[in-house]
Simulated assay, not measured.
Amino acid sequence: MDSNFNDSQQSQFNQETVPDNNLVWAILCTVLCCLPFGIYAIICSTKVNKLWLEGDYEGAKKASADAKKWSIYGAVVGVILMIVYFIFMMVVGVSSFSRGY
């Protein structure tokens, strides 16, 4: 019986911790950057804890990585769209100014 107790203790020490679900980054991406990518990142991040508790450790790690990946994609797309919008507004402003409107 003592050996079973030691085995269970050893398995607890070997067991990894729950991966970060990246929910904060997904929400920030949704609110500040790109809605579609952010929503998908939120969906992925909410799966992490559920999969981990079900024992699907690889699935939880993949969901965590997907949430992080889609949050980054959304942030990059959001920044690119802001830059394009800024350039567009500068071109429109300069052309309006040169016409005398």
Score class of each variant (00 low, 15 high):
Val92Asp: 09
Lys50Asp: 10
Phe88Tyr: 10
Asn4Cys: 08
Phe13Leu: 14
Val77Asn: 05
Leu35Phe: 10
Met1Arg: 15
Leu32Ala: 14
Tyr101Cys: 09
Ala75Glu: 05
Met1Leu: 14
Tyr101Ile: 09
Gln15Phe: 13
Gln10Arg: 11
Val76His: 07
Phe13Gln: 13
Cys33Phe: 03
Asp66Cys: 15
Ser45Asp: 03
Asp66Gly: 08
Tyr85Gln: 15
Glu58Arg: 08
Asn4Gln: 13
Ile80Ala: 09
Lys68Thr: 03
Tyr85Pro: 01
Trp70Lys: 02
Cys33Arg: 00
Met90Trp: 10
Tyr73Gly: 02
Ile43Gly: 04
Val84Gly: 04
Glu54Phe: 12
Met90Ile: 09
Tyr57Lys: 05
Ala65Trp: 03
Ser45Tyr: 01
Ala60Glu: 00
Leu81Ser: 09
Ala41Pro: 00
Gln12Gly: 09
Leu51Tyr: 12
Ser64Asn: 07
Asp66Trp: 07
Lys61Gly: 04
Val92Leu: 07
Met90Phe: 15
Glu54Val: 12
Ala75Ile: 12
Asn49His: 13
Cys34Ala: 06
Lys50Tyr: 11
Lys62Ala: 03
Cys33His: 01
Ser98Gly: 12
Arg99His: 12
Tyr40Gln: 03
Gln12Asp: 10
Tyr101Lys: 13
Leu35Ser: 04
Pro19Trp: 02
Ile83Ala: 09
Ser71Cys: 04
Trp70Cys: 02
Ser96Glu: 15
Phe37Leu: 05
Asn6Asp: 14
Arg99Ala: 12
